[in-house]
Design a binder for these strands. Sequence first.
DNA 1: TTAAACTTTCAGTAATTATTGAAAGTTTAT
DNA 2: ATAAACTTTCAATAATTACTGAAAGTTTAA
Lengths: 167, 167
Amino acid sequence: MEFKEAKDKFINTWGAFGTLWGINKAMAQIHALLFISPDPLSMEDIMEELDISRGNASMNLRALMEWGIVYKIGVTGERKEFFTSEKDVTELSRQIAKERSRRELQPTIRVLKEISNITDDGTAKTKEFIKQTKAMYDLADTADTMMNRIVNQEQNWITKTLVKLFK
Amino acid sequence: MEFKEAKDKFINTWGAFGTLWGINKAMAQIHALLFISPDPLSMEDIMEELDISRGNASMNLRALMEWGIVYKIGVTGERKEFFTSEKDVTELSRQIAKERSRRELQPTIRVLKEISNITDDGTAKTKEFIKQTKAMYDLADTADTMMNRIVNQEQNWITKTLVKLFK
DNA sequence: TTAAACTTTCAGTAATTATTGAAAGTTTAT
DNA sequence: ATAAACTTTCAATAATTACTGAAAGTTTAA
């Protein structure tokens, strides 16, 4: 396999993978493109490479910047702006985990906590509801805590130990 | 808040959460409904409760069964079939992690491995491509391994220890 | 067998989500 | 101040994804 084929395959695979996890195709593909590009790219470059419109490129670049995994940089002597992505996969996953937790997990956890607090009227359906939503709350909360701790901070001794044991 | 309101809130929240993670609304809502129901429900019950068509209910129930988190059961004396969900959240997350790994992560990992193996022609773009896709492969592979080990097997001492430390 | 009770399938349609492209907005150089 | 170079916005449209409903299929009971 040669470079061009491999590159296209990466961009497409990443796009498809993103789609399965609730990220739109163009966004994932722009990220993929920047991720493997040795140099920053202009909006023009991206539009051409991925065959997408200016508006699409603009909107998804902004979204990627809001996720904290793509940066806009100025190149001296150039009028237009250039974009580059987070190249360190550890930092990349840290950032994604952080954002998904903040945007999606935490709001859900808040609701679970709230609704699992209805007064127990003694009926079977209420009892089951409280039991199950509490269990779901605990699960989500534990997952969120672990996710944040593992990916947020610098790897501490326990994480290192764990990684060694799991490798 | 009373039961009915809390119940609707749970079903809707779960549906919205699922959507963000690539699971369709009806599927997530059916799961939510079964998850809090003390008794198994018939297709009729589900259709009525969620106000969806027979076809929709049928297809999503099948999908949930394929994910291994909803079961079809026969009730003696009843002609129609009843459905119930996995009630244990540990088993639920184990199953979801297992399936997402199998269906989505592993195929992606396979591609990453393949494409990061192109021959290095010495150009900067090829070098960067190989470096970055290898890094992504390592990340995905480690994540997959950890995910599977943590959620797949019975909690062993290290996991227990970890959970304690993280709580 | 027959037929009632129930489930599945899938073509058509609806709803949602993503994308375009051009007008409006912004920045920079002169 | 003007205009060229560039970016953003957003209404219109396209593409994708989900849902419906009825016909076909299956199971069960008599």
